[in-house]
Nucleic acid binder design. Structure first.
Lengths: 337, 337
DNA sequence: TCCATGGCTGCACACGTGTGCATAGGGGGT
DNA sequence: ACCCCCTATGCACACGTGTGCAGCCATGGA
């Protein structure tokens, strides 16, 4: 017992399959009564057109591939949520694939997208980028990079305005009166890390504060690495009174380590994060952070992709402003340094 | 410039497209030398078979649909990660769709899955269940429900062993010496809530503790609702010394409210969660909770589905045991009640 | 009555891949 | 020389849908 096709409908309606096809597409070529009868039969029999057969002739699959490092990353999940929203509104379906940052898996994923004949691809938060962008470029399909490190000529991109956001976060600490402000970054080499760090330095400079190399440490974007890095910062002869963290998970680890050292947040040390994960508002203290509009960024990536697909070629690179959300993890410093 | 097909390869290899097809499938019917030559041409020209054309004749799309309420839910994200892992290993691609618990969107999603001719469907954490399981059953495709409330005859299911886990969590509190233990549940009516509550009552009963209706409150599975419910519990003349929460997000809200009332966790009140989200270990205090092996459950759902698809019909309903993870949010009570 | 026109329908092919069946060619045995 | 068998290949059709083109029929105008 197979899924029913237009031929089945044609048989019961005593017409040719061409007429059925036209009737279902609301072509003006078919007699209104016949068309209505055909549509009724189709409705009652639960007919569903085969996307495979349709895309075979139309050469468009109404499908996009989304490749992420890990969907378990809450930032990624937020973005994908927005992507799926926008796709759904336009009748597109999304293939989701984790790369887990494993090169051979990335190859497999790209291959499967090629075979599925996706109409476009969105890549988010991949640290490889340069390695397999050529792979992606090989297929003649538009690509949108989201917070990726190598916006190349082959791809369009949506990115958070890292420099400005980093500047805003640092300024906030400066305005509270802090002067020994640390930067707790991601692992080396990621573009977003470099850019947020740049914003940090710009804010210091414009406030006339001296940049100190020993107030910079690098973690791994997760709480574990952040704790280790925080240990270093706390061991300085003059430890910081405030820390600007690469992201919220880093801030989480930093706060834990600060407390394990018997210090208070924000009493002794203020902490700023980046992302505004869902849980960040419920932490104790609620985290001051830079909000990345994750869902909205996902939507933007998808709508950009759809525009490129219909070759209405818009601007190549979109920068989205972050928003400083002030909560309880930042306060004026106790001591005036 | 279109994607190249076996016909293009056939032309350059001066054979028919049939021979190319057979060569690429490693059919023993073709001359080894010819086959090698064909495969070389295919490789060098970057040929990728069209999944659409292939599935049209094979009547299998090597594709599964995954419908979730929201991918932004960290539990869901963990599960989907496991699903995608297992799918990828077997050459399957996954369509991801959010339902957002909106009925008309669910209808649209199911329709798109039908048109894509997915080989199977996984539904996770949907509270609707009964409403559109008939919709799903209409397509002749195997369905696996994950932590869903209506495991019906049409569907296979993977579920956490809620009753046993609820019992373990409550026992843990009893063994610490607590006697006034509250249950802070999800909104009414969800099966998983009922089951965890049942485990709670069983543990009380087997310990000879009296069940008290006024030590039960219901939130919404999120921090906001949990705070409101916790207010009620704290207003009792004899407030609880421990709270077993429906999930980690609920525990998060409960802890915040407890602290806002000037009480300490676990000093004054112990808190147990459910899920073991990634961040729960990094909270302050680290959360005692029931671990749901999210990725593994996702993998199980996918492998079950694959078995059913290849009609190697395994057991219908799988129960996965939860694991009690004792951390810092639980301690013996101060007062002996 | 004849012809032109227009509305509606069916034929046939295309999309890319898989496969049953026929066939061509070659080698070996009688 | 003839036959048989085996290997290797091509033909043709199928899968489900869309569409150019031809053709049929009715209607209306001359």
């Amino acid at each position: 017992m197979q899924a029913i096709s237009i031929k089945d409908i044609a048989r019961t309606a005593r017409v040719s399959h061409s007429t059925v096809s036209r009737a279902l597409c609301h072509s003006p070529l078919v007699n209104p009564e016949t068309a209505e009868k055909i549509r009724r039969i189709a409705r009652e029999s639960g007919y569903r057109p085969s996307a495979a057969a349709r895309s075979l002739v139309s050469r468009r699959s109404e499908t996009v591939g989304v490749v992420v490092t890990s969907i378990a990353d809450p930032f990624v999940a937020g973005v994908v949520s927005g992507i799926e929203d926008a796709a759904n509104e336009h009748g597109f379906s999304v293939f989701l694939a984790n790369s887990n940052a494993e090169p051979e898996r990335e190859v497999r994923v790209v291959r499967s997208f090629e075979e599925r004949r996706v109409d476009g691809i969105i890549v988010t938060a991949s640290r490889v980028g340069a390695l397999y962008v050529p792979l992606l470029a090989h297929m003649r399909v538009p690509i949108v990079l989201l917070n990726n490190q190598h916006p190349s000529q082959y791809a369009h991109s949506v990115m958070i305005a890292n420099v400005e956001a980093g500047r805003d976060a640092t300024r906030h600490l400066i305005e509270l009166g802090h002067r020994r402000i640390a930067y707790l970054g991601d692992c080396y080499g990621r573009q977003s890390d470099k850019e947020r760090f740049l914003g940090y330095r710009q804010a210091l400079e414009e406030a006339g504060l001296r940049f100190q190399e020993r107030l910079v440490a690098h973690g791994d974007g997760k709480p574990e690495g952040a704790r280790a890095a925080m240990v270093k910062l706390l061991s300085r002869r003059q430890p910081p009174t405030a820390v600007f963290c690469y992201n919220d998970l880093t801030a989480l680890g930093a706060i834990r380590q600060i407390r394990d050292n018997g210090l208070d947040v924000p009493g002794c040390i203020s902490v700023v994060g980046f992302d505004d994960l869902y849980i960040s508002q419920y932490l104790d203290p609620p985290l001051t952070t830079i909000r990345q509009p994750m869902r909205q960024m996902g939507r933007m990536a998808m709508t950009t992709l759809l525009q490129v697909i219909s070759s209405a070629e818009p601007g190549h690179d979109l920068r989205v402003p972050g928003e400083l959300i002030v909560r309880g993890s930042t306060a004026p410093p106790k001591e005036r340094s």
